[in-house]
């Protein structure tokens, strides 16, 4: 579904992502892990269009998408959440999710001013759809709250809800469990599985190893911008290079 071919990005002299090849199979929950500064979020930003890679190709459903702007990437069916929560703070929870429906709707300025029948029908269906999503993400008791007044865990869930509103084929989750407590993390694993069961492919960046090992089907490990391992969770746990990357390589000392 998503394929990276020799993707490289340099910022000045720093090579943040170095010739990464990766393929995310359709319908999978794909984990992307690595120590701090390994280039995971940078890779996310390349996929979602925030950065254009210096070289290499990004293919989504056989189409090259590298270098096209984020709003077009979203329209193609890739939605994302952000590591450092990026909600629309002054908008209500419901409005945040409704913004997520942007690419699936089409009302323009004139039809909104004139409140055409089509525009009203669209608004109504958007509302219902968003209420469903909020129910799914267990935020239905908070719909009229300003999003900045939510708890940290709720804000993370709202980010996922907003991403789901664009009906993505591929969902990119950037450290969705950061700042969550144990129970919230368990609920999150369950939510990710349920999203996946609906047919959405999930690409997950996460630091919490327990969660990643629990929920993902395939894992790719990055270190210093390079891919160092790729495989099923059980294999990754045994991989010497991965253990060395995480715990520090003592052989050369």
């Amino acid at each position: 579904m998503l394929k990276l071919e020799k993707v490289t990005i340099r910022f000045g002299g720093l090579t943040a992502v170095n010739e990464v090849d990766m393929e995310v199979p359709k319908g999978s929950i794909f984990g992307l892990i690595g120590p701090n500064g390994a280039g995971k979020t940078t890779l996310f930003n390349i996929i979602s269009g925030v950065y254009a890679p210096t070289s290499g190709r990004v293919l989504f459903e056989e189409k090259e998408i590298q270098g096209i702007p984020p709003y077009k990437v979203n329209k193609l069916g890739i939605a994302r959440t952000y590591q450092n929560i990026n909600l629309f703070k002054q908008m209500t929870v419901l409005e945040n999710v409704m913004v997520g429906c942007h690419t699936k709707t089409g009302a323009g300025l004139m039809s909104s001013i004139l409140r055409t029948r089509r525009q009203r029908a669209e608004e109504k269906s958007v509302r219902e759809k968003c209420l469903d999503i909020l129910h799914f993400m267990q935020l239905d008791s908070k719909i009229d709250f300003k999003s900045r007044n939510l708890s940290y865990g709720e804000q993370r869930r709202l980010e996922i809800a907003r991403a789901l509103a664009s009906e993505p084929k591929l969902l990119l989750l950037d450290e969705p469990a950061a700042g969550m407590n144990g129970r919230e993390k368990e609920e999150l694993s369950e939510t990710i599985r349920r999203i996946n069961e609906k047919g959405v492919t999930v690409l997950l960046v996460e630091h919490d190893m327990k969660l990643v090992m629990n929920v993902t089907h395939i894992i790719c490990v990055l270190n210093y911008g390079k891919k160092i391992a790729f495989g099923e969770p059980a294999d990754i746990q045994q991989n010497q290079e991965v253990i060395a990357a995480y715990l520090g390589d003592t052989r050369n000392d």
Binding site: Y71, N86, F88, M98, H102, V126
Partner: peptide
């Protein structure tokens, strides 16, 4: 009517967080 519509939500989203607005498919 503008404010309560898809267009108005796009406006407010840009005010609140242009990066996230872009990421949510708003030009």
């Amino acid at each position: 009517r503008i404010v309560d519509s898809r267009v108005g939500r796009a406006f407010i989203a840009i005010r609140e967080n242009p990066h996230a607005a872009n990421g949510m498919g708003i030009n």
